[in-house]
Amino acid sequence: MELQISSRVCQNLLITVALLICFSGIFYTYYQPNITWLKWPTVSRSNSCSEICISALKMPNQTEMVNNTCVVNIISIRNLLTQTEAVTQTDPDTILLIWMWPFGAKFDLGRCSSLFNIHGCRLTDNRSQFNNSHGVLFHHRNIREDDMPTLPRPLFQKWIWMNMESPSNSAPHSTLNNLFNLTATYRQDSDIMVPYGRISEKTGGSTTYKIPHKNKFVCWIVSNWSSKYKRSQYYENLNQHISIETYGHSVSRPVSKKDYLDLVSSCKFYLSFENSIHKDYITEKLYNPLKLGTVPVVLGPPRKNYEELIPGNAFIHVDDFSSPKELAEHLKLLDQNESLYRQYFTWREHFVASSTYFGLEHACWACDHIRRYKNYRVVRDLNSWYWG
């Protein structure tokens, strides 16, 4: 009998506390008292404090009996009230530590807000900030077992695994499993997906696109040549039917950064051939020609995968033709028919292509992700996910 009375008292106390919280929230929401220390989460009218409080009161009994003493657990109510709180620019900065520079290439750490409109994120490469950092970014190619953090890992800290190389061009590490919380790669199933480039809607409405002057037919810049690559074999066959201007270290015709832009934009078609074929592995070999006003001829994952990221009329896929000879005939036709060639530029009236800021973009979006999403996450079998 005494236990039943105590339980009833606990339930009444819970309801009383919940009502006090609700009335305070309603008062603050609607009357906006000028008290700086009273900080309730911003709640929209469509999801008002009163509605949240009512739903909280409908939750299962949150009282406990410990040594016949009533303990009221209102954590669930507090969590429910704060779960809609939005990230604001007045929140303390989220700190992301870049443990190693990707490929040793440094970038400006202060451009997240100006380039990507990401606020409240602070990037650092100062390892002494390890204990204060909300996230730590590790670049796969630079990971070494003798260069990993040795201090105890803070419970709130997330480790982000970054890799932009395809599985064929990066070797797995046996110690990667159960180590990271988030992934940042080119793959669409990553936690933080950062492609090699993007197609974005033009600001200011549609405009007519002026095709750059063309004085070359088909071009290809290649510095990593291997007869085992599918792209090398396809090139050899295609080159038997059309003339291809080939550049790069592999053919002793290197192209400087200064000359690259003018060269690619002067070609009617550019061979955007990937060095390995994997889902979502669509690199700057595609996005750079798109940005420079050249029609890319792609060899990589299936057309369907490309069309998940770029317009279908922005490129030519080798799989659309039964043979390199048939592709060569199609390119000749487009070269002779200006009207047909211009159809590959109609998407440019509404969209624009851009390239990724390698490393910086991964860091900024990773920081923004951990700032917004506080849930626990662990990548238990990274090796199987990426290389399996």
Rank of each mutant, 00 (worst) to 15 (best):
L292F: 13
F107A: 04
A184W: 04
G300W: 01
S256Y: 03
T124S: 11
H134L: 04
W387C: 03
I52Y: 02
R45K: 14
L115M: 13
L155C: 05
F273C: 05
K257C: 09
N239F: 00
W220H: 08
T356F: 06
L292K: 07
L80T: 14
I75C: 14
S227Y: 10
S266I: 09
D259K: 10
K158E: 04
V43F: 09
G293Q: 01
F351Q: 12
P296N: 08
E361P: 00
D368T: 02
P296Y: 06
I35C: 11
S50H: 10
R342S: 11
P212Q: 03
Q83G: 03
R371G: 02
Q240I: 07
W225I: 02
N67E: 14
D280V: 07
G312L: 10
D368Q: 10
Y376H: 14
D93Q: 14
D368H: 08
W161H: 12
E274A: 02
R144A: 07
G205P: 00
N131D: 10
M100S: 15
G104T: 01
A18I: 12
N73E: 09
K279Q: 09
I5D: 14
V379Y: 01
W385G: 01
M59H: 09
T29R: 14
D191R: 01
P60N: 08
H330N: 11
Q32R: 15
C364D: 01
I95D: 07
K214H: 04
F321Y: 09
M59S: 15
V255D: 02
W40V: 07
N117D: 11
Q129N: 06
D368I: 00
S272W: 05
D191E: 05
V297F: 04
W101H: 01
I35F: 12
I26M: 09
Y306P: 00
L333H: 12
I370E: 05
L80E: 15
Y270D: 06
C70Y: 05
R303L: 10
H134F: 03
T183C: 03
Y30W: 12
R253S: 15
G248P: 02
H350L: 11
R342T: 10
P41Y: 07
E308G: 01
G300I: 00
N215R: 02
S113T: 07
Q343S: 08
N224P: 05
S323V: 04
S166Q: 06
R122H: 13
W365K: 15
S226K: 09
Y234V: 03
L292W: 11
S384I: 08
V251R: 05
Y234K: 04
F217Q: 04
F273L: 10
V136F: 00
S226A: 12
I5E: 15
V255N: 04
F345P: 04
R45I: 14
K258Y: 13
R144M: 08
D91W: 11
